[in-house]
Amino acid sequence: MSTPVLDVQGLAFAYPDGHQALYGVNLHVHRGERVALLGPNGAGKTTLVLHLNGILDAGAGSVAVSGLPVTKDNLREIRRRVGIVFQDPDDQLFMPTVRDDVAFGPANLGIRGGELEKRVMEALDKVGMADYADRPPHHLSFGQRRRVAVATVLVMEPEILVLDEPSSNLDPASRRELAEILTGLDVTLLMVTHDLPYAFELCPRSVVLSDGVVVADGPTYDVLTDDALMAAHRLELPFGFDPRAIGRR
């Protein structure tokens, strides 16, 4: 088998205050996969995500991205390879215009001039926001801001796109538009979410993190229809949603 895009082995981490968030997490994601990372609040999902691009240092175990270990010396390249879209677009978009914001990442990588401009417009095009390049981000709707946030990461041509709660606070139309954009991208995807129908729609595979360990890893249909597993880890399907009625995808 080829080198996984994401290779997490025995990852453990405790916060400085002594709170242990991860107890030996193993996770492999291969090229082109779309994986949902599910789990109750406080399961350690965000902590795990912050290890993927070296914001947090592993207490034990290792993380590698396409074979490159996440260490201090590799941070620059790791952060190009792993694109994280945070939950609140207002945290991610801070430049005066959409164009400047999308250019921020590649400019940090040393890209300039026409090449920069080309990549910025390509990324905005992929999320359908090219017409808004010169608008200030805070004048856009929430759904538009989330799409621009995705573009700010896509522009770095990451090997894996990590999304933290991509559907939160979106109205149903924006939620669907984002789903269409995400399924249309040719990129490996890891999506942290509580939105189980969204996970089912977008991700063929799901990983359940609970109390700092991976407790399930398999086809999303199997995870969502395993009632004992779901109940044991505070996962609940929303009212009226039944994966069995939809069937395997």
């Binding site: 914001i55 952060r79 994280i84 945070f86 609140d88 945290d91 991610q92 005066p96 921020f104 990588l109």
Partner: peptide, 20 residues
């Protein structure tokens, strides 16, 4: 959180306002 998001996109301390 903003700082975290910036670091995640390779921020190292310099930031040009527009005109890039």
């Amino acid at each position: 959180r903003v700082h975290l998001a910036m670091v995640s996109r390779g921020y190292t301390g310099s930031l040009r306002q527009g005109s890039d």
